[in-house]
C-alpha cells in the first residue's frame, strides 16, 4: 500500500505575502483508476474543514457509476485559470487573487447557487445552511487517500 502521510493535511493557511510569487498548487486526480471507493478523502475534507463527519460537506466527491461494480469517478475543483464560478457570483464571495487562487468568503455568500451552476463539472455544491462548498486545494484529502489517487501539483500559469 502506498503510504499516506496521514494527519499532515491540516487546515490551509493563507500564504505569507513574500511567498506569493511561488507557483500556486492545486489538487489533481493523478490516478483515478486506482480508487477503491473508500470515501476516506470525502470524510477527510469534511472532518478537517467542517469539523464533522459528513459526505455532503465535502468539496471532493467520489461518484459511483453503476454501483460498486462500475468505475469510480473523482470530482474535484480544477482551479481554472479563468474561473466561471468567480464570474457568476453576484456578491463577490468568490475572489480570484493575484496568484490565481480563488478565495471563498463565506460571510458574503447568500446561497444563490450561481457558482455551482456555472461549474459544469459540478465541483461546487451547497451545504445544509445554503453556503457554497468550494475546494481550497489544502491537500487534506491527499493525505488520507490510501491508494495514491490524489496528488498536489504546481500550476503552470
Amino acid at each position: 500500500m502506498k503510504e499516506a502521510e496521514a494527519g499532515t493535511g491540516g487546515e490551509s493557511k493563507e500564504a505569507p505575502p513574500e511567498r506569493a510569487k511561488r507557483k500556486r498548487r492545486r489538487l489533481k486526480v493523478a490516478h483515478p483508476e486506482r480508487c477503491i471507493g473508500c470515501l476516506s478523502c470525502m470524510f477527510a475534507c469534511s472532518r478537517i474543514n467542517a469539523g464533522r463527519a459528513s459526505l455532503d460537506r465535502s468539496a471532493i466527491r467520489v461518484k459511483t457509476q453503476g454501483g460498486l461494480e462500475g468505475d469510480f469517478a473523482v470530482v474535484i475543483c480544477r482551479a481554472c485559470k479563468d474561473p466561471p464560478c468567480v464570474a457568476a457570483c453576484p456578491r463577490g464571495a468568490l475572489e480570484k487573487r493575484g496568484d490565481g487562487r480563488v478565495v471563498f468568503k463565506k460571510d458574503l455568500c447568500d446561497g444563490c447557487g450561481a457558482c455551482a451552476d456555472a461549474c459544469l463539472i459540478r465541483a461546487i455544491s451547497m451545504d445544509a445552511e445554503g453556503k457554497a462548498i468550494k475546494c481550497k486545494h489544502c491537500g487534506a484529502c491527499v493525505a488520507f487517500c490510501p491508494h495514491g489517487v490524489l496528488e498536489m501539483e504546481e500550476v503552470e500559469e
Binding site: 500500500m1 464533522r52 463527519a53 459528513s54 488520507f144
Partner: peptide
C-alpha cells in the same frame, strides 16, 4: 444527508489520525 457533529473536533481529528495511521501504515491489516 445528515452530518454527525462531534463535541470536540480537534480531539476527534487527533484520535482519527492515530487510528488511520495504524490501519494503513502498520501491518495490522495487511
Amino acid at each position: 444527508t445528515e452530518d454527525v457533529e462531534v463535541p470536540d473536533p480537534k480531539r476527534y481529528r487527533e484520535i482519527y489520525n492515530q487510528l488511520y495511521r495504524t490501519v494503513v501504515k502498520t501491518d495490522a491489516m495487511e
